[in-house]
């Protein structure tokens, strides 16, 4: 498709046209460039300057790179970082695959009750965080429904401490994020599937391709831009994970579920505020995401 397209443009384009096209292209993006510059980059530069300072509240002084050195001797930061990366490695792939499966199943026009399933699976994303935190704490409490269920089916012999055991609390958080965001990601795939040319599937069916083959050889390659988008966005989301941890475990027990964003929040508002060090920790997220996105872009093969 795109080959035919570029071939076509090459024939058409004269210098004047190219100039005109370019100039109009800038018009399309100028508002965004200015807005993001003002509301994101200007504060980001300020935050960077802040990361070179340290002190309580408004008593800040320049300390150069001290904050960055301090990171390496900060066990809470290291715990937060390893927890966050653990969430990322386990949760993002599981969620993306689940969301893809749901969207493909729900895109089948012969399936009954599609509207119901779609809405039900999306609902967790709109449910208020407060409600969802209260209920997760209740479900996963030591005498909550989850334990009751597992006990009844003899899967465990005594109640598990889902929220107060350091290992299980991490699992609970991963379940919670997956529960909340799978439907959200499904929306992106469902909408993208509508823009896919149906005739390709018909052709494949005539050629005798099984649904699984269709999934791997048509759906996935066609959805590649959106899969790339969701995996980058989910990566960023997980690296900035805050809501679930804050509301379900408050980072505990004993920092076992602490994330980087939660730590930034604590440094700014929970402890005596050290905005300089908090800014330093956020720049670490920035650096991490840049590296990870770069890898994802490379793997996704976006470059032509």
């Amino acid at each position: 498709m795109s080959q035919a397209n570029s071939h076509y443009t090459k024939q058409q384009s004269t210098f004047v046209q190219r100039f005109k096209k370019n100039y109009i292209g800038w018009l399309f993006i100028i508002l965004s460039v200015l807005g993001i510059g003002l509301f994101y980059f200007y504060p980001m530069v300020q935050a960077f300057l802040l990361s070179l300072q340290s002190g309580m509240g408004s008593n800040l002084e320049y300390v150069g790179l001290d904050n960055y050195i301090r990171l390496f001797n900060d066990p809470t930061f290291i715990t937060a970082l390893t927890n966050t990366i653990l969430y990322l490695l386990i949760q993002v792939p599981v969620m993306i695959v689940l969301a893809l499966i749901f969207s493909v199943l729900l895109n089948d026009p012969t399936l009954k009750f599609r509207g119901f399933f779609r809405t039900a699976i999306f609902l967790p994303a709109v449910t208020s965080l407060v409600a969802y935190a209260v209920i997760f704490k209740y479900l996963f409490g030591s005498d909550g429904l989850v334990n009751e269920f597992l006990l009844n089916f003899n899967l465990i012999s005594e109640p598990l401490n889902w929220l107060t055991d350091p290992f299980l609390a991490k699992i609970t958080i991963i379940i919670a994020i997956t529960w909340r965001w799978t439907g959200y990601n499904m929306i992106f795939y469902l909408s993208a599937l509508q823009n896919v040319d149906k005739s390709m599937y018909e052709a494949a069916r005539i050629d005798g391709a099984s649904p699984v083959q269709q999934f791997f050889f048509i759906t996935i390659p066609l959805l590649k831009p959106i899969i790339l988008f969701t995996s980058i966005v989910s990566t960023i989301g997980t690296l900035q994970l805050f809501d679930e941890v804050m509301n379900i475990t408050s980072g505990g027990p004993g920092n076992a579920t602490m994330t980087i964003s939660m730590y930034i929040y604590n440094l700014s508002f929970e402890y005596t505020p050290d905005f300089g060090y908090a800014a330093t920790v956020s720049y670490v997220i920035l650096i991490l995401v840049v590296i990870l996105s770069f890898i994802q872009f490379k793997l996704g093969g976006d470059r032509e």
């Binding site: 993006i29 965004s32 460039v33 993001i36 003002l38 509301f39 994101y40 980059f41 200007y42 504060p43 980001m44 300020q46 935050a47 802040l50 966005v233 960023i236 690296l239 900035q240 805050f242 980087i260 964003s261 930034i264 929040y265 700014s268 905005f275 908090a278 800014a279 956020s282 720049y283 997220i285 920035l286 995401v289 840049v290 996105s293």
Partner: peptide
Amino acid sequence: IFNILILSMMIPFAAIMIPLYRL
């Protein structure tokens, strides 16, 4: 420019909140 704009998604909001408030 696109790649630079994408960078703006990556910093946690808590970090730019105070400069933004000042703005």
